[in-house]
Amino acid sequence: MLKDFFQKKRKYATIPSEQAKKDIPEGIMTKCVKCGTIQLSKDLEKNLKVCTSCGYHFKLSARERVALTLDDGRLFEYDHDMVSKDPLQFPFYEEKLIKQMEKSGLNDAVVTGEGTINGYPVVIAVMSYDFFSGSMGSVVGEKITRAIEKATQKKYPLLIFSTSGGARMQESILSLMQMAKTSAALKKFHNEEGLFISMCTDPTLGGVSASFAMLGDINLAEPGAIVGFTGRIVIEQTIRQKLPSNFQTAESTMKHGQLDKVVQRSELRDVLTQIIEIHADKKVSS
């Protein structure tokens, strides 16, 4: 009977037992979002959060990025306590900000400061996708600008890790103007012959890529990182264009002449050191 069939089926449904849940503590295994391989989280951490099977570079938070990049993971942080206001009284913006702070443990989408890489001092800015999709509002624009100004003043190389979905809509025109502000600061930095290494991580889009992220003397990116201006979904929805599967990946963006080099996470510190060393006699005074 049909009815029996359904009842039978229900019998076969497996419900994870409480015991099983206890045996695998949460987070002990991680599934690669790209290839699906399940691996020990511990192994993944050891591999700098790069999939041990396919080499997919997992997103890193700003704190993780700092820990992997700077000597001993030590950062002398600037403007830690700078936070967003709600200048337009935009619907639900304040509530969202509080939620993003709780979720990420950050005060906004970028951490800035100075540290050393193999002994070379640098000014560093690291964006975090886990705060409001790394969107740029007044705080991101101001902190990046202050970091650029610090680097100009101290004559340190400037290193920015970008990741962003674009401008922060809740700050509307003020967000847009952060693109001009950061780019103008970079003009002064370049005039002073400062070295700017821009590192694009997944994803770097919109107002961030169309300002400081594309203005490096050397533009680097992590493997597989999406780097572009208008994201795939918007293009597909707006003009119904079919896009190749590798569209805007770092490898494809480099092929089209927009990036200098795609760098594996494990090699980044070495590559950065080499670049800084080449420019060292001139600018770094450590």
Binding site: A184, S209, A210, L215, G228, F229, T230, Q258
Partner: peptide
């Protein structure tokens, strides 16, 4: 797609700077 491949982000950024 073509605008992206020819560097839409870089072109805008360069103008700002």
């Amino acid at each position: 797609g073509a605008a992206e491949e020819r560097g839409q982000a870089e072109a805008i950024a360069k103008n700002l700077m």
